[in-house]
Design a binder for these strands. Structure first.
Lengths: 200, 200
DNA sequence: AGGATATTGCTATACACTATCATTTAGTTG
DNA sequence: CAACTAAATGATAGTGTATAGCAATATCCT
């Protein structure tokens, strides 16, 4: 019982936990940047944060998660759900992407970009991201189903959702040395192209 | 110099290697089926095949690869390349899939199906498969580029390729407890739907 | 203040994977 | 066929991620 919202009083314990979590991630990313992902051990990270390795794994189940964890994800999902109801799924997605990244500071931009490059450079991390990506097909399929009046298991609906995610994913592997805005523009263009029915 | 084809005389050593490789994979898959993937150690597999753990890793770089390695993959790629030149990429893909799986024995069918279910059930394996899948976007993009007269870096081309892979991937996560033919039919239907321009 | 509870650190352990070197086995040449 | 070369194997020791259990400590609540 008592699973109420915890907005007003975070509590001392909660605050400490949040700080530790942030410290671990910050130091980890710094070390990864300085000496590489593989060359950095969990032990080193723990030492830098001045906690035990045990504690590291209590906060992040794996070494990978310390990079993958992104507090922007829930924001994006919320923005997606908050889009007007008369849009197609693709339009809603484009709108959400625009809305979220428009409200980002320069620091946040560069941080996001660095994180993404790190993820793409390390095979393990890239795979994890792909898994998250693939699991979003289900999410999108539900949305497509609701707006099209078909079932969520409909082959057409699922193919549609898959195509959306695929088109979104395509620029990720294309980019050699671009910037974040360029990258987002590519994603948007791909979605627009898909919405037009892939008129090659 | 002297990098000739080796069709006529496999050689004793080569034959032994092929046998060892096959034995490792066979025993590994059996043990995975009997006691689960995680519960089976490389040591156990090596013991079952009567080789040293070192040898296991000489044949398969990781424990995952013993499941992922599929001698059907090159066949599929070859079939893809052998499709008539006047087809669209999607048509070529559909043709290749049909051609390859039509010529499969019942045993091969069930084996392929079991392998796929194992891969989907184990997160690590699923991720590896997704990575392979994603890397195929490049392949498909080249093909699309060639037939459409656009560049391989063209956003439209890449989005098109991504959409193809996404549509192919969609049924993989949809299926609850189907059969292989059902599964293939879903893939084919998804591609057909995509080719029609996603008319929802 | 004091007792329930959450968080942490420590120790031991399992397992995937790597590196190195001695040994055996297959292929080759005089 | 015997000696040489090259490849495959086995054994050993080690690294790093991740898990489990227990004892110590810090926070929370009354």
């Amino acid at each position: 019982m008592s699973s109420r919202g915890k907005d007003p009083i975070p509590g001392l314990r909660e605050r400490k936990k949040a700080k530790t979590r942030a410290a671990i991630q910050r130091h980890a990313l710094r070390l990864f940047r300085e000496q590489g992902y593989d060359a950095t051990t969990v032990e080193q990270i723990a030492a830098a944060v001045e906690v035990s390795p045990s504690t590291f794994f209590r906060y992040f189940p794996t070494k990978e998660d310390v990079v993958l964890y992104d507090d922007l994800d829930p924001v994006l999902i919320a923005a997606f759900g908050a889009q007007p109801g008369d849009l197609t799924p693709i339009q809603a997605l484009r709108g959400a992407l625009r809305a979220v990244f428009a409200g980002l500071s320069a620091d946040q931009m560069t941080e996001q970009w660095e994180r993404m490059r790190l993820i793409l450079a390390i095979p393990e991390l890239r795979m994890r991201m792909l898994d998250q990506f693939a699991s979003m097909i289900d999410l999108v399929a539900d949305l497509v189903a609701r707006r099209s009046g078909r079932g969520a298991d409909d082959i057409a609906v699922r193919a549609y959702a898959g195509a959306i995610m695929g088109a979104l994913l395509a620029p990720v592997f294309a980019g050699t040395g671009e910037t974040l805005p360029e990258f987002l523009a590519r994603m948007d263009a791909g979605l627009a192209f898909l919405e037009a029915g892939l008129p090659l």
